[in-house]
């Protein structure tokens, strides 16, 4: 089985600040990390490989430093890394990104399963996985909290609020996974050592045979005009005293009054 897992290098969320003048993310000096939900996707890919055999290819689109996210994926145990890096890919929205990722999937070829994190913590759109499936014309399952593969079909549990929906799709298919699907493993020393010798490819728009009118800013019908920080919420503490039963009633009344229950 060939699994393609798509990963993104994102700013460390503990470290992110907005520039108060421009409203843009301040990226200088901000540490980067593998998007946490993509680590779940990598973990799921490796578990499926352990069960069914095959190859796991990690793919990322971004500037050269995005190779760090791919190296993390290799250190966790992925077999091959593909960095899609070209100035023509810069400024892409989810449509242009999905076009580029789909071109890479086609070039790698023979894939059975595409795995994505549900969303990236920086853009938070949750569109790239589904859009890539649409570009490739393959079935998609979003919000998966379990993934099982059998006889050319993939079966997933989908988390929908308080309900779980069980669906199946014919392979090849694309899945986006939730955070509670698994606990991502660490990059182990032995895999980090091996990762140094694993295949790492960097592909440009030309390598992909991509139409640059469809990539990057040119291929993006949407653009970010402005980023604003949501107003800070004032926290306040209310103490309900007295007997436990009275305090519980007072708390319930207060929550009800605020339409919270």
């Amino acid at each position: 089985m060939k699994i393609l897992v798509f990963v993104k290098q994102v700013p460390d969320t503990d470290d992110v600040k907005l520039d108060p003048k421009t409203g843009n993310l301040r990226r200088e000096g901000v540490k980067s990390m593998l998007n946490p939900l993509d680590a779940n996707a990598v973990e799921e890919a490796l578990r499926l490989k352990a069960k069914h055999g095959g190859t796991v290819c990690a793919i990322s689109m971004g500037p050269p430093q995005s190779m760090d996210a791919l190296k993390k994926a290799l250190g966790m145990g992925c077999d091959e890394a593909y960095l899609l890096s070209d100035r023509a890919f810069g400024g892409a929205d989810t449509l242009a990104t999905s076009y580029t990722l789909a071109k890479a999937a086609e070039k790698i070829g023979d894939y059975d399963l595409l795995l994505f994190g549900k969303h990236a913590v920086d853009g938070d759109t949750a569109q790239t996985g589904p859009a890539t499936a649409a570009q490739l014309g393959i079935p998609q399952v979003t919000l998966a909290s379990s993934v099982e593969v059998e006889d050319g079909w993939v079966t997933c549990n989908r988390i929908l609020g308080t309900d779980v929906q069980r669906v199946r799709a014919k392979l090849p298919a694309a899945i986006t996974v939730c955070g509670d699907i698994n606990k991502p493993r660490y990059a182990t020393p032995i895999n980090i050592m091996k990762a140094q010798k694993k295949p790492k490819y960097t592909w440009t728009a030309a390598d992909l045979g991509a139409d640059t009118a469809c990539t990057g800013m040119k291929g993006s019908p949407s653009a970010t005009k402005r980023v604003v920080e949501p107003p800070k919420r004032e926290g306040k503490a209310v103490y309900f005293g007295g007997e436990a039963a009275d305090a519980a009633k007072a708390l319930a009344d207060a929550l009800e009054a605020d339409h919270l229950i």
């Binding site: 993390k72 660490y186 990059a187």
Partner: peptide, 10 residues
């Protein structure tokens, strides 16, 4: 070097 930085991060 890169390998050591990756080990350190892990």
């Amino acid at each position: 070097d890169t390998e050591h930085l990756e080990l350190q991060a892990s």
